[in-house]
Design a protein around this nucleic acid. Structure first.
Lengths: 142, 142
DNA sequence: GGGGAATATTAGCCAGACTAAGTTAGTTGG
DNA sequence: CCAACTAACTTAGTCTGGCTAATATTCCCC
């Protein structure tokens, strides 16, 4: 029999695959893709610069450029400039972008709430307790 | 203030996004992509048919066809036929495919173990307790 | 003011997802 | 028993989303 950390890692690995599928279903059919939704979410509290967005979403700058291009074409975000540094482009939500973000968030939360409603109180408590741990896992700088 | 289930759903949503990034890092640089690894894993216990694989991975058949084509080109899987029904194609691991699967699994588990090692015993216990709940979440038939 | 660093974009590639359409093989009912 | 339907796959075409390499621009510093 294996040592405990390895077994736990295997179980986590299995569950992670499961959750990816859950997440996929959660966003299926929404008017924005899961990536677009994530980017809109980053803009909720004001304009951000391209490098910030790329870092936050763990993608290369050119990838973010393309995503922002699409969102701009769709009228959901607008590019601006930083008066202090002409190299940087800022990105912010348009009114329509904010509306869309909130609508998708509502749908998404509703879907997840439904899944959570199928659990017992104990299960929900167990899950809630584990969330900070999971968040810590993901943000480990390795 | 919002009701509790909604808040929990929001937190779960946030953590899920986080975990997707973790998972991405876990397979980065491996000799197979995360999808290919997942498909190889489905073949571990014997041949499967295309429809089974597509369903299991929640993708359309054509998507699976393309993936299997690539794995076949790479020599990791082999297509076969069902003697009882000439319409179905079976897919199974080659020796090389099995080797690759095990190697990637080891690397992946090692990576996750490292993340888990950074946690306290309590945190690991909390996480372990929540895994069955998370698995239940993901498999909810909605 | 010239050279290197920082910020972004463009271009070109590949994986992975989808739908629509085509092929081949089984199934069924008149 | 054969014609029509259904099932299992594959092919073709399109889209998103990721990457690297190359190119502008602008800033900063010596």
């Amino acid at each position: 029999m294996r040592d405990d950390p390895t077994r736990l890692a295997e179980q986590v690995s299995t569950v992670l695959r499961h959750l990816v599928l859950l997440l996929r279903r959660t966003v299926a059919g929404q008017p924005v893709t899961s990536q677009q939704y994530a980017v809109l979410g980053s803009l909720e509290h004001g304009p951000r610069r391209m490098t910030e967005l790329a870092e936050e979403h763990a993608v290369q700058l050119p990838t973010m450029t393309v995503q922002i291009n699409r969102l701009e074409d769709a009228g959901l975000v607008a590019r601006g400039s930083d008066p202090a540094d002409a190299r940087v482009r800022t990105v912010e939500l348009t009114g329509e972008g904010r509306d869309r973000l909130l609508a998708v968030r509502r749908a998404r939360i509703a879907h997840l709430s439904q899944e959570l409603a199928a659990l017992t109180d104990d299960e929900r408590a167990t899950l809630a307790a584990a969330l900070p741990v999971l968040a810590k896992l993901g943000s480990n700088p390795r």
